[in-house]
Every structure is written in structure tokens, then in C-alpha cells.
Design a protein around this nucleic acid. Structure first.
Length: 417
RNA sequence: GUGGCCGUAGCUCAGUUUGGUUAGAGCGCCAGGUUGUGGCCCUGGAGGUCGGGGGUUCAAGUCCCCUCGGUCACCCCA
């Protein structure tokens, strides 16, 4: 056991596993870049108030905040999710609308780790501010859906709900509250107390007692006002037009309080662990005001990298690919490899060599392991004649090439394949 | 925050029940077999505070206590 280990709930991602992270992030960047989203890099910690403001009655803020005081006495918190930070950045700088942003960043929650749940996890996400158009909801959902397709996941479920807006939600909350109060004694202890404060949270409870009650509770989708109902219908129609299948989930409220209208969650049925949510998000039309900005609609999602990769493992797709080079230079004279490798790399060829004066046998072993197709061999004979032997590591075909022509020759050989 | 299971070589694990010489295997790594050749094979080698601390005992990887870590679950979430 090493003396120092990664802190509880964190882990190191090393090659070859890390190659999946590289590719996943690149696929996402390409996909959202194509849709006009620009990268936002925001601080990994914020004033604690930023998060308190957007989720005071949520578990994420109440009991999972990874907060601390800095040397200047500021109360800071590592961000538990991406939206609050990006929205705070928009309010601070006010770039012109519409503002379409993406990020790839760590998030932190102080909880006990388990399968698919870490204190530091990583999310890919987008935030789009400036329009209420339901087509934007569809665009955003389609971006996440597309990424799951990119990695080859075949079994993703999309759960969809509408939480209404400031016009229709109060009446619904009253109805829900009244219903829950009637059944108060049947709820779990934690939610008996939360009925008044935030009855929606009860819908999110997974305890059997609460689930039994909420199965027959009033549903927001039955209480939407005209505008919200139309919005929801147009989102559904748009998804259908794009061939994205979804299920209506009337009790899907998500873990953060700022959502209204469209909320959605992606689940991976292939995951057997308790954490099968691989992404989620929704609309947050009032959030900019809560952070001191002008009223501005917005929508976004976060995708958990660790969970997506676990889902890929469960489906047997998107395997790690060890780093490989094209050419390995085997040099027993110790006087040619440095230069040959350098020139190959400058010419755009992936090339490597052995260090430490190893035997030819050992160098070939490394060449084999490097994944190279070609070996460039320089021994005493070659050195004396000013040549190198270029050998295929698959067929063992050999050709003698003048040292100064090695780069061109190798590029030609690689181009043939 | 609460609970179950688990910590022995770089990795996967045996050995713990019934305490007893220098703690093992497979894989990986290194070297040699092959004085210019990898993948297969053979031989050899390196590598271990048995998670840490305390206790019981003539003797502890093995029994007891504490502690740290891992893992899974509850709640909740990515």
C-alpha cells in the first residue's frame, strides 16, 4: 500500500483508460462546436453563495457541498455542478445573447463514494441562454443524445417531464401540498418535514413509503398552463421529428431547484449499479435573476463522464485504445536514434525509441509493444554504410535505405496502408 | 451520516477456519537461451513494513482491540 493515496472519493485516470477520456471529450467538443457552442472555462470554486442561491432546499447544497474557508476568510465551495458557475459568469460579463456555451470540468460533492459516485467527478455539459424557443430544448437534448450515439451506447433511455413555470406551478404546488398533507403519516421522516418547504422534493424520494404515496399524487403535466403545455408539446414534437425516443416521467423533478418547464434525464439500463443516470438537465428560466442578472431564459445539461464510461463497459462498447506509434527506431550503436526519431516526429510521424542502451533483443521487444508497424534498425553495419534497415514488424520484410532518405521512405510506407 | 464485505508482490489472488522453520502461484517486469531481431517456448532473477498501531502468546499473515483505506448499499445525484 502506497504511503499516499488519492483522497477519498477521487481517483487517478491513467493510460490506457485515459484514452477514452480524451476521445470522449474530443467527440463532445466536435459535436457541440458544430452547433455553435463555445468553450467556457470557469473557476473550480465559487463563493458559497452562488450555489446556496440556486439550491437552498436541495441535498446537493444542504449536505453535499464541498466547502471551505480560505486564508482571506472567504467562504468558498468547490462547484457541485456546472450550471451555476456558467450562469454566474454570464451575469458577470453579459456576453451577447444567445449565449451558447459548453464545458468539460470536474464537479465535487462531499458524499460517501460508491459505484459510479465520486467526490470528484467530471461532467461534459452545455448551457444555452437567451431564448425560450422549445426548438432550443430539442437542440440541447439532441446534443446529449448524439454523444451517447457517438460512443456506441445502444440502450439509453430519455426521461422527459415539464415542471411548469411561475404562472402554473404555484397552483400545482398547492394541490400537491394538500395531497401530501393528507398522506403525511405515510411519508418517510425526512419528507414529512419537507412538504411545506418544497413538496416537489417528495416526488424525488426513492423510499418505498414515499413512492407509494406519490404514485397517485397530482401530476404537474396535468396542471400546465396554456403556454407551458404548448411548449411541452412542441418539445415532444421536435424530439419525434428528430427520431429521438423518450418516455414521459411525471415525477422527474431533478435534484436542483432552479428547473422549470422541460426537465430530462438519461439513464443507462445496462448499468446494474444504483447509479444509472448518465446525464440530465433542464430549463432554468429564472436562474439569472437569482444570481443578480436580468431575466433571461436558459437551458442546459450535464453528462457524467465516469458514468458514461461505466455504461460503455456494461454494453461492451468504446474500449480503451493503448497509445501507439507508427515507427520504432532500434539503434544498437547509440548514435543514430535520437536524430532519426526527431526527424520522423518533425515530419509528423509518430515515432519512439528505447532509452538506456538496451540490447537489440530488448529494443525489439519494446518495438513490438509500442504498436509500431515499422522498425528502423541501425546497427554497426548500417552506421558504417550510412544506411538503415526498415523492417515491417508484421511481415518482417526488410529494405535498406540511406539514412538521409529514411523519413521519406517511412512516410511512403505508412501512406501505403 | 449509517450499515455489510474486503485489505498478502506492479496486477489477480492462495495461505487466515485448526497460530509453528527462510510467505506462495499465475500474469507482468528484467536477463539469458539466440554475439543483429520482437511476438511462441524454455531457464533464471528482481520485487513483500502480509494497510497501520497496540495487545495476547515461547511463537501472529493467522487470535483480540483500535485506526486508516477500498468496495457495495441506503439517502441523493453525474
Amino acid at each position: 500500500m502506497a504511503e499516499f493515496q488519492a483522497p477519498v472519493g477521487t481517483r487517478d485516470v491513467l493510460p490506457p483508460e485515459s484514452t477514452r477520456w480524451e476521445r470522449l471529450t474530443a467527440l463532445f467538443a466536435t459535436r457541440v462546436g458544430r452547433a455553435g457552442y463555445g468553450l467556457v472555462v470557469s473557476p473550480v470554486f465559487e463563493d458559497m453563495g452562488v450555489f446556496e442561491r440556486v439550491g437552498e432546499s436541495t441535498d446537493v447544497v444542504r449536505k453535499e457541498m464541498y466547502d471551505f474557508e480560505d486564508k482571506g476568510g472567504r467562504h468558498l465551495a468547490l462547484r457541485p455542478e456546472g450550471t451555476a458557475s456558467v450562469v454566474r459568469a454570464w451575469v458577470q460579463h453579459r456576453p451577447t445573447l444567445p449565449f451558447k456555451a459548453w464545458y468539460a470540468a470536474p464537479s465535487f460533492r462531499y458524499e460517501r463514494p460508491q459505484a459510479g459516485r465520486y467526490r470528484q467527478h467530471h461532467q461534459l455539459g452545455v448551457e444555452a441562454l437567451g431564448t425560450e424557443d422549445p426548438d432550443l430544448d430539442v437542440e440541447v437534448i439532441a446534443l446529449a443524445w448524439g454523444l451517447y450515439g457517438d460512443v456506441g451506447l445502444a440502450q439509453v433511455r430519455l426521461l422527459l417531464n415539464s415542471l411548469g413555470d411561475a404562472k402554473c406551478r404555484p397552483a400545482y404546488l398547492d394541490a400537491l401540498r394538500a395531497f401530501l398533507l393528507e398522506h403525511r403519516e405515510e411519508l418517510c421522516d425526512e419528507h414529512k418535514a419537507r412538504i411545506e418547504e418544497n413538496p416537489l422534493r417528495v416526488l424525488d424520494c426513492k423510499r418505498a413509503s414515499c413512492v407509494r404515496v406519490t404514485e397517485t399524487a397530482p401530476r404537474m403535466v396535468d396542471h400546465l398552463c396554456e403556454e407551458c403545455a404548448v411548449h411541452f408539446e412542441r418539445v415532444k414534437a421536435g424530439l419525434e421529428e428528430l427520431g429521438i425516443s423518450f418516455e414521459i416521467a411525471p415525477r422527474l423533478v431533478r435534484g436542483l431547484d432552479y428547473y422549470n418547464r422541460t426537465t430530462f434525464e438519461f439513464q443507462a439500463p445496462a448499468l446494474e449499479s444504483a447509479q444509472n443516470g448518465i446525464g440530465g438537465g433542464g430549463r432554468y428560466d429564472g436562474l439569472t435573476e437569482q444570481l443578480g442578472g436580468p431575466p433571461t431564459p436558459g437551458i442546459g445539461f450535464g453528462i457524467g463522464i465516469e458514468r458514461v464510461l461505466l455504461a460503455c463497459d456494461a454494453e461492451g462498447v468504446f474500449p480503451a485504445a493503448p497509445a501507439a506509434v507508427d515507427v520504432f527506431v532500434v539503434d544498437v550503436t547509440g548514435s543514430a536514434a535520437l536524430k532519426v526519431v526527431h526527424h520522423l516526429r518533425e515530419a509528423g510521424v509518430r515515432a519512439d525509441q528505447a532509452f538506456g542502451g538496451r540490447s537489440m533483443k530488448a529494443q525489439f521487444k519494446l518495438a513490438d509493444r509500442s504498436g509500431a508497424q515499422l522498425a528502423v534498425v541501425v546497427g554497426p553495419d548500417e552506421l558504417e554504410r550510412g544506411i538503415a534497415t526498415v523492417q515491417s514488424l508484421q511481415s518482417n520484410d526488410k529494405e535498406e535505405v540511406k539514412l538521409e532518405a529514411v523519413v521519406d521512405h517511412v512516410r511512403r510506407k505508412l501512406g501505403e496502408k
